[in-house]
């Protein structure tokens, strides 16, 4: 008997909650980014678990797209962060209000 799928889903839910909690609590932009990665990983784990529970490989294929979106998001987001820190080295997430037009 393998591990029931609900265990994985509960673990993914807790991981998602930790990521969301860190995103809300932390003020460092890079750590907030890592918390977004935690949330994306929780969703990936959910996809893979459903692929096993429902016998459907489409869940595993969707993880690819999450990976691509995560990579694109990190590239562009880190570009914005580098641009901000180049102007002011002690920036936190609140300093991003200079982006408003």
């Amino acid at each position: 008997m393998t591990i029931p799928g609900s265990w994985y889903l509960t673990l993914a839910a807790v991981l998602f909650g930790i990521g969301g909690l860190g995103l809300l609590v932390r003020r460092n932009v890079l750590v907030m980014f890592m918390c977004v990665e935690l949330m994306l990983n929780a969703v990936n784990l959910t996809f893979v678990t459903y692929a096993r529970m429902l016998h459907d490989v489409g869940g595993q294929a969707l993880v690819f797209f999450v990976l691509v979106v995560a990579a694109a998001e990190v590239v562009v987001g880190l570009g914005v962060i580098v641009g901000l820190f180049r102007r002011r080295p002690d920036a936190t997430a609140d300093d991003f209000h200079i982006l408003k037009g």
């Binding site: 509960t10 016998h55 490989v57």
Partner: peptide, 26 residues
């Protein structure tokens, strides 16, 4: 954040999925 965790865990007591299948195969 803790409220989100509690809500998602509360949903664990209900059904996780409808059982509908995709088209991609096992």
């Amino acid at each position: 954040g803790l409220a989100v965790v509690a809500e998602v865990l509360a949903l664990a007591n209900t059904h996780w999925s409808t059982g509908a299948k995709g088209t991609a195969g096992p």
